[in-house]
């Protein structure tokens, strides 16, 4: 048995979508100078809220909105803790992940294995049947295309618009931004909420579209991968896409390698996407001064508006 490259690429794009959504959200948060380590917790909240809503309403759209809302609510908690109460961002983010995992498990009790409605695909059957290009370009669910548009939109807003400039300025030097009269805390809270909504959308995609099921801990570290991707991408949106595809590609490939029973232990194959992510991160970070040039200078620093 050989591995079909077309189905591999299709799988790659599906696997990478949740990570891509979460990472592009986190990129915006970090560009505003906030380090939210709670991505994993927000993703799984999105997954459970999306799944429960999809089951009850039968509407995937409602499910995605609920997923975004649930994760954004969790993000709001983080925003209040870190921006208004000046709590440490690292500790709050870790707590958020633990809290999210626990809360999601509680909400999802009894929902495992229940049916959810199928998701629509935007392109007609005829387009999907074109050989090679059809499955790769036109076979995905709407949300996959939304994720790609989101990457383009984030890139455009960050580099070409005034809002993006202000956001970057806040992440670069919050004292200077404050001195110029920009509302640092407000901008950061909005960025955190956006990041939460994106992570939640990624989680909802996972449970409602890709797996179409709910079980505890189903995000399986995707949130952490998303965090790593942002660093991997040196805070550049298009590189986040590249990184997400790299991670998705290896994840999809290793599943197929397991199926064809190559002589590599299954445990090692399972771990390979994470190992490759670590490896790439090490290589990327080896040039410290270049990585530091793109990093938001105020990342993770508590802003206190003194006179």
């Amino acid at each position: 048995m050989i591995i079909d490259p077309v189905t591999l690429i299709v799988a790659l794009i599906t696997v990478s979508t949740p990570v891509l959504l979460a990472a592009i959200g986190e990129l915006v948060v970090e560009k505003a100078g906030v380090l939210n380590l709670g991505v994993e917790g927000m993703m799984i909240m999105g997954a459970v809220c999306g799944f429960v809503t999809a089951h009850h309403t039968g509407s995937p759209l409602m499910a995605f909105v609920a997923g975004m809302g649930g994760a954004a609510a969790l993000a709001m908690l983080f925003a209040v803790l870190t921006q208004l109460l000046m709590a440490n961002q690292v500790a709050s983010g870790l707590a958020l992940t633990l809290f999210g995992l626990g809360l999601a498990a509680l909400i999802g009790v009894g929902y495992g294995g229940l049916p959810v409605p199928p998701v629509s695909r935007p392109f007609p059957e005829a387009l999907r049947d074109i050989p090679v290009a059809g499955p790769i370009l036109f076979s995905h669910s709407t949300l996959t295309y939304v994720a790609l548009i989101l990457v383009a939109a984030v890139w455009y807003v960050l580099t070409r618009t005034r809002i993006g400039l202000i956001l970057r300025a806040v992440g670069e030097n919050h004292d200077a931004a404050h001195a110029l009269g920009y509302k640092v805390v407000r901008i950061r809270i909005l960025a955190i909420l956006f990041g939460g909504a994106c992570a939640g959308l990624g989680g909802a995609f996972l449970s409602v579209v890709r797996v179409q099921n709910w079980f505890e801990g189903m995000t399986a570290g995707a949130g952490w991968i998303a965090l790593a991707l942002v660093v991997f991408a040196s805070w550049k949106p298009w590189r986040v896409l590249l990184g997400a595809w790299l991670f998705g590609g290896i994840a999809a490939l290793q599943l197929r390698l397991q199926a064809v029973e190559v002589g590599v232990p299954v445990a090692l194959l399972d771990a390979s996407p994470y190992l490759v992510t670590i490896l790439v991160l090490v290589i990327i970070s080896s040039d410290r001064s270049r990585a530091a040039l793109n990093a938001p200078a105020a990342l993770g620093r508590v802003f206190h508006a003194s006179s």
């Binding site: 970057r168 300025a169 030097n173 200077a176 931004a177 001195a179 040039l293 793109n294």
Partner: peptide
Amino acid sequence: HFSLFEAL
């Protein structure tokens, strides 16, 4: 103390 953004 200059209110400037070095990376911009």
